[in-house]
């Protein structure tokens, strides 16, 4: 599903290259649950962003389902975000001026799904994530765990094949973290490929594969 070959990411500061990622080679198959670990500044998030088409590598080749992702057009990128890739963030990043219902609905609107169908999808998700009674609340009225549930519901509403989670439990206490990880595990079992970045060794074990990233290099693969 994902194939990274000799990926470099660097910034030029005063003609000096400062590498964030160096010669990253990585293949991820459909249905995997991969955890990326590593110290701060190791390039974990950058790697996730490149996979999620939010950032571009400076060098190297990235293939998604055998399609090259180098220099893809904005329109194509939008299409991937609408139909193939979902995101979850440590800080949830819900749109504050929208209710729970509207936050989950927005990606479906962008995807062009008709109103009636949207209603069914959202109703199912709200039930599945136990958010039924919260649908008219705004993010600021929810606890962190609840916000992250909405974040996940929003990410999976469009039925993506790949879910990218950047420290999804980073802002949560352990109980809520476990709840979120269980949910991710369940989604993976339903067939969604998941790549998560985490600092938490316990939560990393939810994945069936752990990648360690140190100073921009994939050091070991367990």
């Amino acid at each position: 599903m994902i194939n990274l070959k000799e990926i470099n990411k660097y910034y030029e500061v005063k003609k000096q290259r400062s590498f964030v990622l160096k010669s990253v080679n990585l293949t991820i198959k459909e249905g995997e649950f991969v955890s990326i670990m590593g110290p701060s500044g190791a390039g974990k998030s950058t790697l996730l962003n490149i996979i999620g088409l939010l950032d571009e590598p400076s060098e190297g080749e990235y293939r998604f389902y055998d399609d090259s992702m180098s220099n893809i057009k904005e329109k194509k990128k939008v299409d991937y975000h609408r139909n193939h890739i979902g995101f979850i963030f440590q800080a949830y990043h819900l749109i504050e001026e929208m209710t729970v219902y509207e936050n989950i609905e927005t990606p479906l609107i962008y995807k062009g799904i008709k109103n009636r169908e949207r209603k069914t999808i959202i109703a199912n998700l709200l039930e599945q994530f136990n958010l039924g009674d919260k649908k008219d609340l705004f993010p600021s009225q929810l606890s962190g765990g609840q916000q992250q549930l909405v974040g996940i519901a929003r990410a999976v509403a469009g039925k993506p094949k790949l879910l990218l989670a950047d420290e999804p439990t980073g802002n949560l206490h352990t109980d809520q973290g476990i709840m979120i990880m269980d949910l991710l595990k369940k989604l993976n079992a339903e067939g969604i490929t998941i790549i998560q970045v985490t600092h938490n060794k316990e939560f990393a074990k939810y994945g069936n594969r752990i990648i360690n990233l140190v100073d921009g290099l994939v050091e070991e693969e367990k």
Partner: peptide, 10 residues
């Protein structure tokens, strides 16, 4: 930015 992540075009 988030709108873009969830599929908004420019």
């Amino acid at each position: 930015g988030m709108r873009k992540v969830i599929g908004a075009s420019i």
